[in-house]
Design a protein around this nucleic acid. Structure first.
Lengths: 329, 329
DNA sequence: AAGTTATGTGTAACCGATTACACATAGTTT
DNA sequence: AAACTATGTGTAATCGGTTACACATAACTT
């Protein structure tokens, strides 16, 4: 593989001039430019990224840490981030953390020593203290769905509480008079907020009782089990709001097995807006702008890497009601 | 961040000795060892991966190219590969190619210049010629689901044809007497093989006719549309084999909308074995050992990177029938 | 006792880029 | 005409490691 030296020799200039040409900084004469361009073409020369990183301190690589790429929410996010990264000339390193703080720490260390230019973290378990190594090294971080303000850490979230309200309101408007709620892990802020939104709307109604809230874990099987229990306790329920789409899908399955028709007997709405087009009936949901979240995360990260100032440290994105067959038939 | 020089100075030895200590090659005395270990601990020193790569030609990074991480097959693969990579101390760069040869080429170039140690490619469109740059640079490649023998390129596939046979046999054994087939893109070898397996079993029967085969595209909506058409042409069909699980899920949806009960009226089986636990009824499938495929891909890649010899260039993995509600109730 | 072999260490070249600095020349100001 | 400024280029240090090679000493061989 050709090096910058080969190019400089063949083009009859110094490596400095070639480097200036490549990076478009400093002066380079028209003649030199042409000569270099020609040689580069001829040798099919591409600068060695590793050497460039060592000298220039930039790797054009970002880390993406997600709990588990198997959860369909994260491929959507990853895809958006990868697309955006691509347009900026960045490459993405994928890290599955399993929400295991030890694994998270190991990956942060690894990414730190691989000198990624920035990191996007989606994690329920991360704590401000875990990021101190990155802060010290001046590596920018964008946090998804986990807010803790701090310099050089930007957080992106959605209107989780408003989403919970929207879901409850939607079911009420459709005539539901006994709405159950499958809530996610209480350790997760956004999960708590969604439930809070639901409660804000339901708590005042005559049908509401705390046992209509079933606690679950954001998985399909968890939603399935919790739905079964709710059905046993409240056979007359006519609406269900699950704090994420996977649990909602599990609820649909439990309802179908129990012989309930959706949406005729029971209306179901989820949260997230992941593309679960295989479901029948199709799932109504409170959709997050997942692609936009991912893209913005990357945009912001690139801005931080470029030491731009005036970046909002906390951005909250709107959610939108997407009514499908599971509520409106 | 501390460098090897800092360590060598504080420990009172040369950088060479520290390097030998770090890489466990060459001789290092007990005293030196202890002194170095102590200093490393004290400075919390970690070797700079970039510098190490530049000098040592190894980046401990591998590229993973997949068509689209949004297709649930690929997160499963990615997860397996990432887990395996992790145990070897490798990091994974994720690339979505969209089966676009130009994008593929760009990514190969990028990975080449980022000097990844190896690449795992899952692609329907890749051609032997596209890999010549990698071959020339001596970067090992493992190909998934796309066979073309060549040195330093290992291919991993599954018994696609046998899977098609298994699916057809399974439906026949369950009493189906008119089985439709939703086949995938004919441009994809494994897709053709699955269909060939189905045909091998069905072609001899009295009910078989070519119009029972519907052509589709490996997506949920494609499976849905094709199922509708098949139902219109053959209202009396009582079994469906789809060449992948996504199309099978689409078929289930179409059947449900058409008022057909699965598996009572129609039995459905897919192919792949991706975890579609949200479906009701749960989907029977011809399962590929996806996790094992991914893990093996990484194992083989590491072996190739280590210049091990005697690696089988073509490995074919078995498939297994997983009977669930969509065929056996 | 001389010749090997094993052990241990340091110097300096090298990987392939970037960039500070020195220097030269041409074009503008005063 | 002297003094600047803008343009253009090359030398060499630097990034932070690895490793070939030279050299020294200790431990075995015969």
């Amino acid at each position: 593989m050709a090096t910058i030296k080969d190019v400089s020799k063949l083009a009859g200039v110094s490596v400095a001039t070639v480097s200036r040409y490549l990076n478009k900084n400093g002066y380079v004469s028209k003649e030199a430019e042409l000569a270099i361009a020609e040689v580069i073409e001829k040798l099919n020369y591409r600068p060695n990224t590793i050497a460039r990183s060592l000298a220039g301190k930039k790797t054009a690589t970002v880390g993406l840490m997600v709990p588990d790429i198997l959860n369909p929410f994260f491929p959507e996010l990853a895809r958006a981030i990868e697309d955006a990264a691509n347009t900026y000339g960045y490459t993405v390193m994928l890290c599955n953390t399993d929400n295991d703080p030890a694994k998270e720490q190991r990956y942060i260390e690894t990414l730190l020593h691989k000198q990624v230019d920035g990191i996007i973290i989606s994690s329920y378990t991360i704590q401000p203290g875990h990021l101190s190594g990155l802060q010290k090294a001046g590596i920018p971080v964008v946090l998804l769905d986990n807010v803790f303000s701090s310099d050089s850490v930007v957080s992106l979230t959605v209107e989780n509480k408003r989403g919970g309200e929207l879901a409850a309101e939607h079911l009420l408007e459709l005539g539901c008079r006994k709405i159950a709620h499958i809530c996610g892990p209480l350790s997760i802020t956004s999960s708590r907020d969604r439930t809070a939104g639901f409660e804000a709307v339901s708590a005042g109604t005559d049908w509401f009782t705390p046992s209509l809230i079933g606690y679950s874990d954001f998985t399909v099987s968890g939603g399935y089990r919790t739905m079964k229990k709710l059905l046993a306790d409240h056979p007359d329920l006519d609406g269900v709001f699950a704090s994420n789409d996977l649990m909602a899908a599990g609820a649909l399955k439990a309802l179908s097995e129990a012989g309930r028709c959706v949406p005729e007997d029971v209306k179901v709405i989820g949260f997230d807006g992941i593309g679960l087009e295989m479901l029948s009936p199709e799932l109504s949901t409170i959709a997050q702008p997942i692609y936009e979240l991912g893209k913005t995360a990357m945009d912001v990260l690139v801005a931080l890497i470029g030491k731009e100032t005036g970046i909002e440290t906390d951005q909250v994105f709107p959610v939108t009601l997407t009514a499908k067959q599971s509520t409106v038939g």
